[in-house]
Design a protein around this nucleic acid. Structure first.
Ligand code: FES
Ligand code: FES
Lengths: 134, 134
DNA sequence: ATAAAATACGATAACAATAGTCGGATTTAT
DNA sequence: ATAAATCCGACTATTGTTATCGTATTTTAT
């Protein structure tokens, strides 16, 4: 399957939403209602975004979240890195190389690496700023 | 997760192998031994490739498989289409649009479609001929 | 005819990853 | 103190992938 996980989808939607708030902090509840998704699940997603340094949180009664840096400095790659067990299109392109029984005589490593690079580039050059509206 | 399924990986390796056989038919057993993978699983993979018209089979004692068309006419997209439940990076870009609760007010459809198009293009322009060696 | 070598294919089990839930802890404004 | 919010680990459920099994069919050599 070649699709983004729900976490990445929700992450991008949340970041897009925050990017349109002009620096004001917003709560997870507000985002979850706006996107019509589970508050619990969204919260975990947001917490992962914090770990990666993409957003900041304020605890307490008037707490919430906001972007930790300008929207044009947050790429889709950043979001994916924060929210998915980063993997490559075939195992052997990353640290999982040990697991592949064809390492010694691999005939697809070069083309697969080229494809991987192209895909990475797509997500590297797409930023939240580009998809923010208003 | 953003990776190709084993079926697609095996499919590409098999097609690459066949492309190097100069039109001679080869058996599933031979491929499975060459790639060091399960004969049963590979067989199912090859049968899916037949359905998609990418390879041809000859039954019986001296049977086996061979490419159904020139290697430069077989794209990675063809292989993926044959071997995976075709999906898009987000559900709503395909027939699954019904399942998405944001259809009426979707704020990521346009950028996601652009990314999807770029990814599709990568697999559209990569052919088995390009990765065949010798 | 028969046996052997091969493909064809549905059913199903085993495994892994994703998606979602729950319970409780911490922080802070009022 | 209380309420509103984030924080976080453990757990369950669901789905998709990977692999196996059993049986049927086709073809050819003998
Ligand atoms: S497929 Fe694993 S080393 Fe290339
Ligand atoms: S995310 Fe489903 S309609 Fe766009």
């Amino acid at each position: 399957m070649f699709k983004l996980s729900k976490k990445v989808e929700y992450g991008i939607l949340s970041l897009q939403y925050m990017a349109n708030q002009n620096g004001n902090i917003i709560t997870a509840k507000e985002i979850s209602e706006h996107l019509n998704i589970s508050f619990e699940f969204l919260s975990k997603t947001l917490q992962s975004l914090i770990k990666q340094g993409l957003i900041e949180s304020i605890q307490g009664v008037h707490g919430g979240y906001k972007l930790a840096k300008p929207a044009d400095k947050i790429t889709f790659s950043d979001v994916i890195r924060a929210l998915e067990n980063r993997s490559s299109i075939v195992e052997c392109l990353t640290e999982d190389i040990e697991n592949c029984g064809r390492i010694s005589c691999c005939t697809i490593k070069t083309p697969m690496t080229q494809i991987q690079d192209k895909i990475n580039n797509i997500f590297d050059i797409t930023t939240i700023a580009e998809i923010a509206i208003y």
